[in-house]
Computed example of a mutant assay.
Amino acid sequence: MTQSRFRSPDALLLERPVRFLLYVLGWVLLGLWQGSEGVISHRGDMHPPAHWENYVWELSSTVVLSVLSLAVARFENRFRITGPGWPRRLPIHVVACLVFSVVHIASMEWLRQLAYAAMGSTYRVGNAVEVFFFEFQRDLSTYLLLLLACALVRSILQRRRQQLRELELRQAVSEARLAHLTAQIEPHFIFNTLNAISNRMYEDVAAADRMVVALADLLRSAMNGEGGERIRLGEEAKWLRAYAHLMAERQPGLLHVAIRIDPALGDARIPRLLLQPLVENAFRHGLRSGRGRLEVDVWAEDGRLRCRVADDGVGLAADAEPGLGLGNVRERLALLYPDDHALRIARRAEGGTEVTLDMPLERDDAVASGHR
């Protein structure tokens, strides 16, 4: 990822006319405010200047400063007062400050002469040396403030870009991890299924043949289905029913599977193959004797998607540790819904194990617009 060059504030302003107009308006308002202060401060004088003169004096200064500030921003971006080697660049800014003050004073005096002439009056310039030293003190402070503002803006923009890069990197790592976790499921499932078919062939060739056909249908469905980490719940339900039928073929008439999914949730989105590892675990561990009942329920409640996988098998062993399937589900939920999901495993009072999932309910429109 290449680092983007810092663009000076004047370039950022000029790219957007509205911001540039607001920028100029800010300087004009500053001049009007300072002019009003001048009017108030001269009220007690024996011979106060005309009100318009106070505004001409201050506006002529702020108008010139509005242009010079953009030039200083561009200049500071080239000779930065921060970063490696900044002491070597300080003498350059000393000279630049002198030039800044001379240009400011000369332009300001010229504008005042034009304004006075337009009002039918004459602008009297004082002693040039005194004027320069008086104005230079103010210009020095202004120049330093502009340098500090440029450094601050650049620091904020650089920090923001760094944060964006870190977010992009974390997202890329998460997506890569999700892809890896999803890829783990499919070979694991295929190997287990092939092993089950192999064992079944010695007991019931016809059943093994039906399992091969069912597996082929599942693989065809997977290749023809939509890609991505999330799929429609309706598609996941088809896969889950086909998989459950495939597993039940190992012990025809002894394994009973009930899959109940609210039809209104057909367009809801769910992580691909999220429930399959839980169902596989129930078959391999809870119902390893080849007989029993498995129940899968999916419903919506309070804007959340609730899933339940329960069996009436041998139950959860006290020293049981999560295997590949369950660990995979945990990691994928943590990546997709950090701090916004729940996965619980419990022994059922009537025997067997129950796994419940809780996650945000997502529809097609929410996923399409990027809301997760």
Rank of each mutant, 00 (worst) to 15 (best):
A237V: 02
R210D: 10
Y337K: 09
D217F: 01
A11S: 14
E301W: 01
A176D: 14
A317N: 08
A149D: 06
D339R: 03
R363S: 13
D267Q: 09
L169D: 08
A206D: 04
L65H: 08
R165A: 14
G44D: 10
G315T: 14
R88L: 08
L14R: 04
R308E: 15
L147A: 02
H256Y: 02
M119F: 10
G225W: 01
T356Y: 06
P48W: 02
T142L: 14
A96P: 01
R344I: 14
A11R: 15
E109F: 13
L146G: 03
L335Q: 11
Y143I: 12
R272D: 05
A118N: 12
I92A: 01
R160W: 09
V205N: 05
H93E: 03
I185S: 01
F20N: 10
T62H: 12
V63T: 12
G286H: 08
F189K: 00
A207V: 05
G266R: 01
G292H: 07
M119I: 05
R19T: 02
F20M: 15
L157D: 06
P17G: 13
W239G: 07
R170G: 00
A50D: 04
A342C: 13
G313W: 13
S36G: 07
C307G: 13
F133T: 12
A207N: 04
A214K: 03
A320T: 03
Y202N: 09
D204W: 13
I40Y: 07
V131P: 00
G126Y: 04
A11I: 14
I105K: 00
W52G: 06
L343M: 15
V28W: 05
R16F: 09
L287K: 02
S174C: 06
D139T: 00
R19D: 10
P9R: 10
S69E: 06
V125E: 02
S221T: 15
G83A: 01
S60A: 15
F133K: 11
D262G: 11
L240C: 11
G35T: 11
R363Q: 04
F6G: 00
G370H: 04
P84K: 11
A320Y: 01
E321P: 00
M108E: 12
A73Y: 13
E362H: 13
R306C: 15
R43I: 07
R7Q: 05
L336S: 11
R43P: 03
S141A: 15
V213M: 05
N195L: 02
D339N: 09
F75W: 04
A346D: 14
G327H: 00
R269E: 05
V131A: 10
A196G: 08
G315F: 09
R372L: 12
I81R: 04
L274Y: 01
F132K: 06
Q34A: 15
E295R: 11
V94Y: 08
G370Y: 02
W33Y: 10
G253C: 10
L333V: 12
L215N: 02
V64I: 14
L254G: 03
L278E: 05
T82K: 00
I190K: 01
I259T: 07
L181C: 12
R43A: 11
T182E: 14
D365W: 01
